[in-house]
Simulated assay, not measured.
Amino acid sequence: MRLLLCCLLLALCAPSLAEPWQVVGDKQFAPYSYVAPDDDAPLGLDVELVDAVLQAAGVDYHLRLYPWLRVKAMLERGEATMAFQFAGTPERRAQYRLVGPLRTGTTVFMTTSKTALEDWRQLSDLAPYRIGQVEGYAYETAFDRAELRRDAIAQTPRQLVAMLLAGRFDVIVGDRTQLLYFARELNAEQRVRVLPQPLVEMPRYVAFGQEDQQRADLFADALERLRSTGELEAIHRRWEH
Rank of each mutant, 00 (worst) to 15 (best):
Q85G: 05
S113V: 05
R64T: 08
P101K: 14
G105L: 13
Q55S: 05
Q55N: 04
G78Y: 01
G58P: 03
T104S: 15
K114M: 14
A52K: 10
R103N: 13
L117R: 06
K114N: 15
G88V: 10
L63W: 04
Q85M: 10
V108R: 03
A83W: 00
T104D: 14
S113Y: 12
V71H: 00
Y61P: 03
Q55W: 03
L69S: 06
R77P: 07
M74A: 00
A80Y: 04
A73G: 03
G78T: 01
T81N: 14
T106D: 12
M110A: 07
G88S: 13
G105K: 11
Q85I: 12
V50M: 05
T115I: 13
G58C: 06
A52Y: 13
L69Y: 05
M110G: 06
E91C: 08
L117S: 08
V108S: 07
R93Y: 13
A83T: 00
Y66K: 07
L75E: 04
M82T: 08
P90N: 07
T89M: 04
R93C: 15
V99S: 10
T106E: 14
R64D: 13
P90F: 04
R97F: 02
L69N: 08
L75H: 06
G100Y: 04
V50Y: 01
F86T: 03
A73N: 06
V53E: 04
L117W: 06
